[in-house]
């Protein structure tokens, strides 16, 4: 029974990983790609780790999976924020269809 629930979580997580990577291919500019890929891949990998926690139970391996899921949930948005900030400073343009860019207006004002 535990195996069945765990493998269900793992397959859902793998599907979310796949959606994130399709987003990495299809979306037009860097910020959209970063956004789609970070969200989908973070929750997908956390789903896989949660499934392995359910399969292994309360053993050393299960606790390592739990710790790894917590760690990814904290660090992945931080690295996404660092990459977005760095590429905006380096001058990567937004897509042509973008509506507003308040950050560029404010940095040019100063």
């Amino acid at each position: 029974m535990n195996e069945f629930i765990g493998f269900t979580f793992i397959i859902i997580g793998a599907l979310f990983d796949l959606f994130g990577c399709i987003g990495l291919i299809r979306l037009p500019d860097l910020y959209n790609r970063l956004q789609a890929a970070t969200k989908c891949v973070t929750l997908g990998t956390c789903g896989i780790l949660l499934g392995s926690l359910i399969i292994f139970g309360l053993t050393a391996a299960g606790m390592k999976a739990f710790l790894c899921a917590l760690f990814i949930l904290i660090t992945s948005p931080t690295s996404a924020h660092a990459l977005a900030r760095a590429s905006h400073i380096a001058g990567v343009k937004l897509w042509e269809g973008s509506v507003v860019d308040k950050l560029k207006e404010d940095t040019e004002k100063k």
Binding site: L24, T38, T45, A80, V92
Partner: peptide
């Protein structure tokens, strides 16, 4: 097209490798 795109893809590839390690361990 830019170096930042490659950095983003590196980040995502690293997290996918973590998921692959977990599946291998199961």
């Amino acid at each position: 097209p830019t170096a930042s795109d490659r950095a983003v893809a590196m980040d995502i590839l690293g997290i996918i490798v973590v998921g692959f390690c977990v599946v291998m361990s199961i």
